[in-house]
Protein backbone atom coordinates (compact mmCIF):
# COMPACT_ATOMS: atom_id res chain seq x y z
CA UNK A 1 0.00 0.00 0.00
CA UNK A 2 1.49 3.35 -1.04
CA UNK A 3 0.20 5.05 2.09
CA UNK A 4 2.45 2.82 4.15
CA UNK A 5 5.48 4.45 2.67
CA UNK A 6 4.53 7.66 4.44
CA UNK A 7 5.33 6.05 7.75
CA UNK A 8 9.01 5.80 6.91
CA UNK A 9 11.47 8.44 7.87
CA UNK A 10 9.78 9.42 11.11
CA UNK A 11 11.91 8.87 14.11
CA UNK A 12 9.83 9.74 17.14
CA UNK A 13 10.47 7.14 19.77
CA UNK A 14 7.75 6.17 22.17
CA UNK A 15 10.14 4.97 24.81
CA UNK A 16 12.24 8.11 24.88
CA UNK A 17 12.06 9.24 28.52
CA UNK A 18 12.42 12.89 27.48
CA UNK A 19 9.30 12.53 25.40
CA UNK A 20 6.60 14.34 27.37
CA UNK A 21 2.98 13.38 27.04
CA UNK A 22 1.12 15.85 24.87
CA UNK A 23 -2.22 14.42 25.89
CA UNK A 24 -2.83 12.16 28.83
CA UNK A 25 -6.09 10.54 29.88
CA UNK A 26 -6.26 9.35 33.48
CA UNK A 27 -9.11 7.02 34.48
CA UNK A 28 -11.59 8.79 32.26
CA UNK A 29 -15.21 7.64 32.46
CA UNK A 30 -18.29 9.16 30.96
CA UNK A 31 -21.96 8.41 31.30
CA UNK A 32 -24.36 10.39 29.23
CA UNK A 33 -28.04 10.44 28.33
CA UNK A 34 -28.65 8.66 25.07
CA UNK A 35 -31.91 8.49 23.16
CA UNK A 36 -33.07 4.91 22.80
CA UNK A 37 -36.36 4.75 20.94
CA UNK A 38 -38.74 7.05 22.75
CA UNK A 39 -36.95 7.28 26.07
CA UNK A 40 -33.65 8.57 27.35
CA UNK A 41 -31.24 6.23 29.08
CA UNK A 42 -28.11 7.00 31.03
CA UNK A 43 -25.40 5.05 29.25
CA UNK A 44 -21.79 4.43 30.23
CA UNK A 45 -20.06 5.40 26.99
CA UNK A 46 -16.49 5.50 28.34
CA UNK A 47 -15.29 3.24 31.10
CA UNK A 48 -12.08 3.96 32.99
CA UNK A 49 -9.86 4.73 30.01
CA UNK A 50 -6.25 5.79 30.55
CA UNK A 51 -3.55 6.32 27.95
CA UNK A 52 -1.10 8.96 26.92
CA UNK A 53 -0.04 10.36 23.61
CA UNK A 54 3.63 11.35 23.51
CA UNK A 55 4.46 14.65 21.84
CA UNK A 56 4.90 14.33 18.09
CA UNK A 57 3.10 11.01 17.73
CA UNK A 58 0.08 10.17 15.61
CA UNK A 59 -2.35 8.14 17.64
CA UNK A 60 -4.96 6.19 15.73
CA UNK A 61 -7.97 5.78 18.00
CA UNK A 62 -9.78 2.82 16.53
CA UNK A 63 -12.78 0.69 17.38
CA UNK A 64 -16.13 -0.45 16.10
CA UNK A 65 -18.81 2.21 15.64
CA UNK A 66 -20.49 3.12 18.90
CA UNK A 67 -17.38 2.31 20.92
CA UNK A 68 -17.04 5.86 22.25
CA UNK A 69 -14.10 7.03 20.11
CA UNK A 70 -15.69 10.33 19.12
CA UNK A 71 -16.90 11.05 22.65
CA UNK A 72 -13.38 10.49 23.92
CA UNK A 73 -11.94 12.83 21.29
CA UNK A 74 -14.55 15.51 22.02
CA UNK A 75 -13.60 15.42 25.70
CA UNK A 76 -10.01 16.38 24.87
CA UNK A 77 -11.06 19.84 23.72
CA UNK A 78 -14.01 19.94 26.11
CA UNK A 79 -16.86 19.86 23.64
CA UNK A 80 -17.97 17.36 26.29
CA UNK A 81 -16.70 16.72 29.81
CA UNK A 82 -15.87 13.40 31.47
CA UNK A 83 -18.03 12.22 34.37
CA UNK A 84 -14.89 11.24 36.26
CA UNK A 85 -11.16 11.12 35.70
CA UNK A 86 -9.06 13.83 34.17
CA UNK A 87 -7.31 14.81 30.98
CA UNK A 88 -3.96 16.57 30.84
CA UNK A 89 -2.54 18.67 28.03
CA UNK A 90 1.22 18.90 28.48
CA UNK A 91 0.80 18.02 32.14
CA UNK A 92 -1.88 20.61 32.86
CA UNK A 93 -5.38 19.48 33.71
CA UNK A 94 -7.48 20.83 30.84
CA UNK A 95 -10.36 21.75 33.15
CA UNK A 96 -8.08 24.31 34.81
CA UNK A 97 -7.35 26.00 31.47
CA UNK A 98 -9.49 28.71 29.95
CA UNK A 99 -11.66 26.69 27.60
CA UNK A 100 -11.07 29.03 24.65
CA UNK A 101 -7.31 28.83 25.15
CA UNK A 102 -7.53 25.03 25.38
CA UNK A 103 -9.47 24.88 22.12
CA UNK A 104 -7.00 27.15 20.39
CA UNK A 105 -4.15 24.86 21.48
CA UNK A 106 -6.00 21.70 20.44
CA UNK A 107 -7.44 21.92 16.92
CA UNK A 108 -10.39 19.79 15.89
CA UNK A 109 -11.53 18.54 12.51
CA UNK A 110 -14.86 16.77 12.10
CA UNK A 111 -16.04 13.95 9.87
CA UNK A 112 -18.15 16.09 7.57
CA UNK A 113 -16.46 19.42 6.88
CA UNK A 114 -18.24 21.93 9.16
CA UNK A 115 -18.29 25.17 7.22
CA UNK A 116 -18.63 28.61 8.70
CA UNK A 117 -20.76 30.89 6.52
CA UNK A 118 -18.55 32.95 4.22
CA UNK A 119 -15.50 32.58 2.01
CA UNK A 120 -12.57 30.22 2.35
CA UNK A 121 -10.59 33.14 3.79
CA UNK A 122 -13.33 33.83 6.36
CA UNK A 123 -13.16 30.21 7.43
CA UNK A 124 -9.40 29.95 7.67
CA UNK A 125 -8.95 33.20 9.58
CA UNK A 126 -11.93 32.56 11.90
CA UNK A 127 -9.85 31.56 14.95
CA UNK A 128 -7.30 34.41 14.81
CA UNK A 129 -10.13 36.87 14.09
CA UNK A 130 -11.85 35.87 17.34
CA UNK A 131 -8.75 36.97 19.20
CA UNK A 132 -8.29 40.02 16.96
CA UNK A 133 -4.98 38.72 15.66
CA UNK A 134 -3.65 39.17 12.16
CA UNK A 135 -3.69 36.12 9.96
CA UNK A 136 -2.66 35.51 6.39
CA UNK A 137 -5.06 32.78 5.34
CA UNK A 138 -3.07 32.16 2.15
CA UNK A 139 -0.18 30.87 4.21
CA UNK A 140 -2.38 28.11 5.64
CA UNK A 141 -3.82 27.19 2.26
CA UNK A 142 -0.20 26.64 1.15
CA UNK A 143 0.29 24.31 4.10
CA UNK A 144 -2.65 22.13 3.08
CA UNK A 145 -1.80 22.52 -0.62
CA UNK A 146 -4.91 24.38 -1.69
CA UNK A 147 -4.64 27.01 -4.41
CA UNK A 148 -4.60 30.58 -3.12
CA UNK A 149 -7.17 31.50 -5.83
CA UNK A 150 -9.74 29.69 -3.70
CA UNK A 151 -9.44 32.26 -0.89
CA UNK A 152 -12.30 34.45 -2.03
CA UNK A 153 -14.60 31.67 -3.13
CA UNK A 154 -17.51 30.74 -0.87
CA UNK A 155 -16.51 27.72 1.19
CA UNK A 156 -19.52 25.85 -0.15
CA UNK A 157 -18.08 26.03 -3.69
CA UNK A 158 -15.21 23.68 -2.78
CA UNK A 159 -15.28 19.92 -3.26
CA UNK A 160 -15.70 17.89 -0.08
CA UNK A 161 -12.04 16.91 -0.18
CA UNK A 162 -10.97 20.55 -0.54
CA UNK A 163 -13.38 21.55 2.25
CA UNK A 164 -11.81 19.02 4.58
CA UNK A 165 -8.35 20.38 3.80
CA UNK A 166 -9.70 23.89 4.37
CA UNK A 167 -10.96 22.74 7.77
CA UNK A 168 -7.47 21.49 8.59
CA UNK A 169 -6.01 24.83 7.46
CA UNK A 170 -8.59 26.57 9.68
CA UNK A 171 -7.47 24.54 12.67
CA UNK A 172 -3.79 25.22 11.83
CA UNK A 173 -4.39 28.98 11.70
CA UNK A 174 -4.86 28.78 15.48
CA UNK A 175 -1.26 27.47 15.71
CA UNK A 176 -2.32 24.43 17.73
CA UNK A 177 -0.02 22.07 19.60
CA UNK A 178 -2.18 19.06 18.88
CA UNK A 179 -4.76 18.16 16.28
CA UNK A 180 -7.86 16.06 16.91
CA UNK A 181 -9.32 14.45 13.82
CA UNK A 182 -12.72 12.80 14.06
CA UNK A 183 -13.04 10.38 11.12
CA UNK A 184 -11.48 13.02 8.82
CA UNK A 185 -11.40 10.71 5.81
CA UNK A 186 -14.70 8.83 6.15
CA UNK A 187 -16.72 11.27 4.08
CA UNK A 188 -14.12 11.39 1.29
CA UNK A 189 -13.48 9.27 -1.78
CA UNK A 190 -10.25 7.26 -1.92
CA UNK A 191 -8.20 9.91 -3.76
CA UNK A 192 -9.29 12.75 -1.50
CA UNK A 193 -8.78 10.55 1.55
CA UNK A 194 -5.21 9.72 0.48
CA UNK A 195 -4.44 13.41 0.01
CA UNK A 196 -5.68 14.13 3.54
CA UNK A 197 -3.75 11.18 5.03
CA UNK A 198 -0.63 12.40 3.24
CA UNK A 199 -1.22 15.86 4.62
CA UNK A 200 -1.61 14.57 8.18
CA UNK A 201 1.75 12.80 7.96
CA UNK A 202 3.45 15.84 6.50
CA UNK A 203 2.06 18.21 9.15
CA UNK A 204 3.17 15.83 11.85
CA UNK A 205 6.65 15.61 10.36
CA UNK A 206 7.15 19.25 9.47
CA UNK A 207 5.39 20.99 12.35
CA UNK A 208 5.96 18.33 15.00
CA UNK A 209 2.22 18.34 15.54
CA UNK A 210 0.78 15.70 17.84
CA UNK A 211 -2.23 14.09 16.18
CA UNK A 212 -5.07 11.98 17.50
CA UNK A 213 -7.15 10.53 14.71
CA UNK A 214 -10.38 8.64 15.28
CA UNK A 215 -11.16 6.23 12.48
CA UNK A 216 -12.98 3.01 11.83
CA UNK A 217 -11.06 2.50 8.59
CA UNK A 218 -8.08 0.27 9.31
CA UNK A 219 -6.14 1.12 6.14
CA UNK A 220 -6.30 4.78 7.16
CA UNK A 221 -5.24 4.03 10.73
CA UNK A 222 -2.39 1.94 9.41
CA UNK A 223 -1.36 4.62 6.90
CA UNK A 224 -0.73 7.36 9.44
CA UNK A 225 -0.79 5.92 12.97
CA UNK A 226 2.41 5.52 14.95
CA UNK A 227 0.44 4.52 18.03
CA UNK A 228 -2.87 2.73 18.34
CA UNK A 229 -5.52 2.61 21.02
CA UNK A 230 -8.37 0.16 20.48
CA UNK A 231 -11.62 1.02 22.15
CA UNK A 232 -14.49 -1.47 22.36
CA UNK A 233 -17.75 -0.66 24.18
CA UNK A 234 -16.15 2.30 25.89
CA UNK A 235 -13.23 0.32 27.32
CA UNK A 236 -9.60 0.35 26.23
CA UNK A 237 -8.68 -3.07 24.88
CA UNK A 238 -5.25 -2.44 23.40
CA UNK A 239 -2.63 0.27 23.38
CA UNK A 240 0.78 0.34 21.78
CA UNK A 241 2.90 1.02 18.71
CA UNK A 242 0.92 0.83 15.49
CA UNK A 243 3.20 -1.61 13.66
CA UNK A 244 3.03 -4.13 16.50
CA UNK A 245 -0.76 -3.85 16.65
CA UNK A 246 -1.22 -4.35 12.95
CA UNK A 247 1.33 -7.18 12.87
CA UNK A 248 -0.50 -9.06 15.58
CA UNK A 249 -2.85 -7.73 18.24
CA UNK A 250 -2.09 -8.80 21.79
CA UNK A 251 -5.66 -9.69 22.65
CA UNK A 252 -8.30 -11.97 21.25
CA UNK A 253 -10.71 -9.02 20.93
CA UNK A 254 -8.05 -7.05 19.05
CA UNK A 255 -7.53 -9.95 16.68
CA UNK A 256 -11.26 -10.32 16.05
CA UNK A 257 -11.55 -6.56 15.52
CA UNK A 258 -8.83 -6.56 12.86
CA UNK A 259 -10.61 -9.43 11.14
CA UNK A 260 -13.72 -7.29 10.96
CA UNK A 261 -15.75 -9.43 13.34
CA UNK A 262 -16.62 -6.58 15.71
CA UNK A 263 -17.72 -4.06 13.12
CA UNK A 264 -21.27 -3.62 14.33
CA UNK A 265 -21.18 -3.38 18.08
CA UNK A 266 -24.15 -1.72 19.73
Amino acid sequence: MPANAMNEGRSVSVNDPKCTAAVELIHVSKTKPVVLGDSVTQLQVIEDVSFSVPKGEILALVGPSGSGKSTLLRMINRLEDPTSGRINLFETNISSLDVRELRRRVGMVFQTPALIAGTVADNVSYGPRLRREDCDPGEYLDLVQLERDLLHRPATALSVGQQQRMCIARALANRPEALLLDEPTSALDQTAANTVLDLICRLNRELGLTVIMVTHLMEHARAVGTQVVLLVRGAKIEEGPADAFFRGPATEIGRRFLQGELSNER
Binding site: N77, L79, R100, E101, R103, R104, G107, M108, F110, T112, A114, L115, I116, A117, Y126, G127, L130, R131, C167, R170, A171, N174
Partner: peptide, 20 residues
Protein backbone atom coordinates in the same frame (compact mmCIF):
# COMPACT_ATOMS: atom_id res chain seq x y z
CA UNK B 1 -25.16 22.35 15.10
CA UNK B 2 -22.05 21.40 13.13
CA UNK B 3 -21.22 25.02 12.30
CA UNK B 4 -21.74 26.06 15.91
CA UNK B 5 -19.54 23.26 17.25
CA UNK B 6 -16.85 23.97 14.66
CA UNK B 7 -16.79 27.59 15.84
CA UNK B 8 -16.65 26.56 19.50
CA UNK B 9 -13.83 24.16 18.67
CA UNK B 10 -11.89 27.07 17.16
CA UNK B 11 -12.15 29.00 20.43
CA UNK B 12 -15.36 30.95 19.96
CA UNK B 13 -17.56 31.76 22.93
CA UNK B 14 -21.14 30.53 22.87
CA UNK B 15 -22.25 33.99 21.82
CA UNK B 16 -19.76 34.16 18.96
CA UNK B 17 -20.52 30.63 17.81
CA UNK B 18 -24.26 31.32 17.88
CA UNK B 19 -24.04 34.73 16.19
CA UNK B 20 -25.76 33.61 12.99
Amino acid sequence: RSEVEASLALGATAREAAAG
